[in-house]
Design a protein around this nucleic acid. Sequence first.
DNA 1: ATATGTGAATTGATTCACAGCG
DNA 2: CGCTGTGAATCAATTCACATAT
Lengths: 213, 213
Amino acid sequence: MSSVPTATVSRLVTYLRILTQLEAQGVKKTSSEHLADEAQVSAFQVRKDLAYFGRFGTRGAGYTVPTLRRELRRILGLTRPWSAAIVGVGRLGEAILHYPNFSDYDFVLKGAFDIDPNKVGFELGGVKIDHIDELPRVVREKGIDIGFITVPQTAAQGAADALVRAGVRGILNFAPTIIDVPKEVHVEPVDFLAGLKRLSFYILNPQLREELV
Amino acid sequence: MSSVPTATVSRLVTYLRILTQLEAQGVKKTSSEHLADEAQVSAFQVRKDLAYFGRFGTRGAGYTVPTLRRELRRILGLTRPWSAAIVGVGRLGEAILHYPNFSDYDFVLKGAFDIDPNKVGFELGGVKIDHIDELPRVVREKGIDIGFITVPQTAAQGAADALVRAGVRGILNFAPTIIDVPKEVHVEPVDFLAGLKRLSFYILNPQLREELV
DNA sequence: ATATGTGAATTGATTCACAGCG
DNA sequence: CGCTGTGAATCAATTCACATAT
């Protein structure tokens, strides 16, 4: 298990979502082919992705939905809830603070920070907004693992630096810029402007798009 | 030019952002090495990515910032403004409707749709909210190219179907689910819950992360 | 009979080394 | 002489075919 393609990790997340839907529908068994159809990949790919982590099926019979779902949750580290905090309570930050049933998704929002004195002290979505200067203390006291960056582009690197100094282990970066962090901190970008620009390219160059079958 | 890696398209977007910042700072010249540092990739990679589309530099001297920026904007199709509409005016939809200076980003939001009669008829961020039944007419009349899906997961496929029937050419999908569209329509996912789950995996398995140079 | 699991083959992307040009 | 541009080599990911287990 020396290395796993990043694309495999993304697909595991997709398979887990499909399995969660199947379980909610009361479906008990599935197959690599069915998962592949739903995830828009090949059945080979599903089996190879799972093979990086072990054997989860029964030959001739397929996969048991609750079992495979549990295994994927374990592999992805979603058995305990992670603690998260949000830096930047603008409109996007507010939208995330109000995201319904966050804990259903294995994450708990425990902190929110902003630099604007008009926002500090208020509560949104059950979370108190602290001044950014309080970040180190709150992150330590509440055991925050993950920081969300929802500040403007120009403030993103500063927010990342503050989160790293306070000891978070991962950052979800909504700002449209690349941030620099030490190698032991992982960053996942969530950049809709970049997505829009890729869309522009592929609309103009449909022949350069990868096949979806 | 039979095929271009999707990773290359993502990196072109990053290079363009860096060039835009350099131009705003009045910097006139740059190099593959400088761009590589900023984008957190190798200089080989920058030159190879650009080589898919032509020759844009001067040997021995590097790249002229405004020239390369203009070329990348042309390659990505960002010379004209694209028309976009948003389906689902919840908190996330509102956050996007208020996104400052959208037109600076080569996109113009011309329409917004919701199913809630309490929202229809109001205006947000200068855009009138129409009932979703009006989508086909408005998309045609306003020449909408791109649809944003910001509805709940269960409504995402229906929203996609409506957009496709109305003739959009691309979809930016913020809903945490895979949507099915005909192959001539391109979809870019913007899925922060998936990003969070990847983060969980990489925090637990730091040794499985790809090297960042 | 059927669908998984996996080494081998293929395809694709990145890295390299240096030729080419200013 | 310096930095780009690019074929060749390496490395990685996907696809395939089939052996394997139930």
